[in-house]
Simulated assay, not measured.
Amino acid sequence: MTKNMEYTWRVLLMVYLSLRATVLDQTQGARQIVRVISAQIYFTGWQALPLVSVLALASGSVLVLQSLSNLSKFGGSQMVGPFLIVMVLREAGPLLVALVVTARSGTAVASEIGNMRANREIEALEVMGINPLSYIVFPRVLGGVISLLCLAFYFNFVALIGGFCVTKFIQDMPFAFYAESLMTAFSLDDFWIFLLKNSFSGMIIFVVSCYQGLSVKKSPTEVPQVTTQAVVNSIIFVIVFNLIVTALFYLNQLRNLGVL
């Protein structure tokens, strides 16, 4: 427990130092930082669209088909919207997108920075007066957060709309009724949960990956080890964070209902 707390504090300290370095360090201009952010968004967001599309369409089709078929049997077709909002937008969407980004981009960031560390490229940046935290860490974290938010929005859209189009051939339901059910079920709380889960999941993934990459000492053989550790820690932290947010939300719902 003490080791985990120490690890968490070190990661949080790196976040603070990277933000501070980005604000105070003027050795490289904003153009270079924007270039690194754009490259990270292109790799993490744009190039991941085919994989996210397939995953969203498959999971959305299964959830839409199950909700339409099972709820219709009990005359609960009006509950289709609330069920899908909870399953796709609140729970499954943030977690699945975070796992895809972790497996695809988190590993790439950790191995890239680890190799830079092993090849002493980071030391070369420091010799040139460039702070690695502002040039390497901050752009990747910011680009990763933006990418994950965009991917999560895209995932929800494809899962809810594309999934309905796929199951339209199996289960007959008017699209107007389906769309109205979704819009009625969607609330401001869902928006804040979407923003909170996905933004912090992106931050967790890329901060942990950058930290693990920077933890490489000298040997290139450490790179696969820190990459594996980055994936494991990112998945654990993301799942725990999602569970905490979900638990707090539903405890607050029960308190508002007077159950607690």
Rank of each mutant, 00 (worst) to 15 (best):
T227P: 04
L142Y: 05
V231P: 04
L251R: 14
S209Y: 00
F200G: 05
F169N: 13
V158I: 15
V207Y: 10
V145W: 04
G163Q: 02
L182Y: 01
G143L: 03
A247I: 12
G258W: 09
M173A: 12
A185Y: 04
L196A: 09
L149E: 11
M203Y: 13
V207E: 12
L148H: 01
F200V: 14
S181F: 04
V223D: 01
G163I: 03
S147M: 08
I205R: 07
Y211N: 09
Q253P: 01
V208I: 15
S215T: 08
L254D: 14
F157P: 00
A152I: 03
V166Y: 02
R140Y: 06
C165N: 12
E222I: 06
W192K: 03
C210P: 03
F206L: 15
F206N: 12
P174R: 10
V158P: 02
F186A: 07
F200S: 07
F155P: 02
N256G: 10
F175T: 09
L160F: 07
Q171W: 11
F157S: 07
L248T: 09
G202V: 03
N242L: 02
V238M: 05
L257N: 10
V238G: 00
P220N: 03
A230F: 02
Y154R: 07
L160C: 05
C165Q: 13
G163M: 02
C165A: 14
Q171M: 12
F177C: 02
F191D: 05
R255E: 13
F191H: 03
F169H: 12
V223R: 01
F186Q: 01
L254N: 11
L254R: 15
V232D: 09
D190F: 00
P174C: 08
F157H: 08
A159S: 06
N233Y: 13
A185P: 02
